[in-house]
Design a protein around this nucleic acid. Sequence first.
DNA 1: AATGAATGAGTATTCATTCAT
DNA 2: TATGAATGAATACTCATTCAT
Lengths: 199, 199, 199, 199
Amino acid sequence: MSQAPDPETGDRPVRRHDPDRAARIVEATVDVIAEHGVAGTTHRLIAAAADVPLGSLTYHFTGLDDLRAQAFALHAERMAVKYEAHFADAASLDDVVEAVTDLVHADADADDRDWAVAYELFLAALRDPALRTVTESWMRRSRGVLERFVDPTTSRGVDALVEGLVMHKVLSIRPVSRAETREIIARAVRPTTPQELPR
Amino acid sequence: MSQAPDPETGDRPVRRHDPDRAARIVEATVDVIAEHGVAGTTHRLIAAAADVPLGSLTYHFTGLDDLRAQAFALHAERMAVKYEAHFADAASLDDVVEAVTDLVHADADADDRDWAVAYELFLAALRDPALRTVTESWMRRSRGVLERFVDPTTSRGVDALVEGLVMHKVLSIRPVSRAETREIIARAVRPTTPQELPR
Amino acid sequence: MSQAPDPETGDRPVRRHDPDRAARIVEATVDVIAEHGVAGTTHRLIAAAADVPLGSLTYHFTGLDDLRAQAFALHAERMAVKYEAHFADAASLDDVVEAVTDLVHADADADDRDWAVAYELFLAALRDPALRTVTESWMRRSRGVLERFVDPTTSRGVDALVEGLVMHKVLSIRPVSRAETREIIARAVRPTTPQELPR
Amino acid sequence: MSQAPDPETGDRPVRRHDPDRAARIVEATVDVIAEHGVAGTTHRLIAAAADVPLGSLTYHFTGLDDLRAQAFALHAERMAVKYEAHFADAASLDDVVEAVTDLVHADADADDRDWAVAYELFLAALRDPALRTVTESWMRRSRGVLERFVDPTTSRGVDALVEGLVMHKVLSIRPVSRAETREIIARAVRPTTPQELPR
DNA sequence: AATGAATGAGTATTCATTCAT
DNA sequence: TATGAATGAATACTCATTCAT
């Protein structure tokens, strides 16, 4: 609409006046990270993915670090939103167990590609503390959702479990059964009964 | 003896004849990955860390990929050995809970540095299926240890939980309490009692 | 004008904005091939010959192969043009014989240096079929010129003879007489009279 | 025979006492040049082709240049011998025409691979005058063979023609007809009749 | 006498970033 | 304001040659 092709020549809409170009570049960066990893993310690949000239990247962003940080922030925001939406209709603990199982088995909206970007973010945050604000706020939101159903400690445990299970599932050579995943989650979600622990 | 450094000058012993140089290079590679990440791992850094000339790397290894793979294999082997040793004296489920908690809180031999390399491996394996044999065999050994105490499903759950909890702990801005970690693990280790799940 | 070298220091005019730099690089590549052969042609030598920074080569060309191919194409084009111009005024078969003799004895514009590049091209084309389009089109043009005077079979023979004679002349330790060359060519140019072949 | 495997162990004949190892290395060098060109000829490839340890090359030869020169000398010698043998039974000029045609069309023993090495030699000799003694003596022998049938000038012309025709044939995208080649050669072999040249 | 580990100079190529236009 | 040509530092990797064993 706003970026209609030039009515005079008709060919090659030179894309003058391109608002939210910056936003499009950030989205393209997420895609490139998903496909090539942080290590393989270059200005050139992003420019190609966003269909913008190379110089546009350093015009709108201070550098690759800036771009990466914004891409991760966008991704974390989207993952959190999906996460929240996913539990919107949960009423019982059974619903929660089912929802978490869906999450791990990608029946939710988040697929392997999304998780790959998430792990890229975790690893990057390990080395760059500036990214911890992104991971921290994402994790807080995830736990907040779960805390509508379970106590904070359980919430933290389930959240950690999801990340570990997804990693196992993605790295596993043989498929992991949904029933087993469900069973594992069910135990973690179960309310605290510490005296049950046998010798 | 015969190739002792020149006692006169003392500088640059020229280091001809250096057996298990290849092994030392692999160890240096683990160190470099720990410090700079896979993305920051270069021939130059490894050569400097191992104190060998640059050409030595491509003489002993086919390339950086080869070197990385061998470094990861070495690291996984060492982590598995530590893991196994860590549970050697465990007798009760209480011992297991304590041992797993130690694992997460780095009271075991594995410290943050070791886990950083582990996560580098996980992420690398996500993109390079050739590395899955390393992750797979490591995970199998970890679960094998736990299966001396709990059923296979529980074992898988605990293993995943450990990875998730370490990640949370490492990425967290505020420290995570050991008591909370212990509580989470205790629930996961607890034997299966599915009927307990309330509505 | 605006990018004149700094009148104060005078050194390194920084050479921003350099149109047809790519063309200059290709020409420099021909020179380097002439002087060092394909085997001795490196990015560094070409960059030095063209007086451009190293990174400029891979900015404008996909790699050394690309650069070599374009250099050979340029050279073949120039050789063909010289060849054609050389026969422009030929009217009789005698003129043709003289022109061909000139060609071999470098009285034409093509000198030993040009022929060296040509032989580099031939050898490269032997191993890289992609270069055959260059050699093929050059040879077709050469024969086209000769076919204004002689039949196609004769044309092909003369063309092959020129290449062989130049090679012999260039490789010979003792000089080859122009009269002998002329005699050899005269026989090849002579019209077809197959019945003359004696027993 | 002389290099029988070690009778004690039986496995891996360590090839102690290996006379004519030097000769075998030179032959391997010819093979490597044929397959990879002079530019792609390395110590490692030669050692692998000759099945000798790397250090053996610099033990028996002063360097790669030495090795190359000896390989070219061997090849030229073999080509000359083939050439001579090829004309041994020729009695008439017709036989000569046929023999030369065979030469170009590889019906003789020399195949494309042999010619590739020959052109590698020519090009190398262009840059390294030391190799001219090899090319010169080879060409002299070729012409000597032909001079049993034709005058020296014709001989030189035919020799040059063969090289040009083989080059054309090898580089041509479409096959060159044997009949056309024969026709071209027949004219070159024909005895001198200079007055025939028409205006 | 023979070898293979060792090395450093050299190779092509990539790429974040700058900046004249 | 926006761009794409330009650049130099850095990368992985090759290889002839040396030399301790």
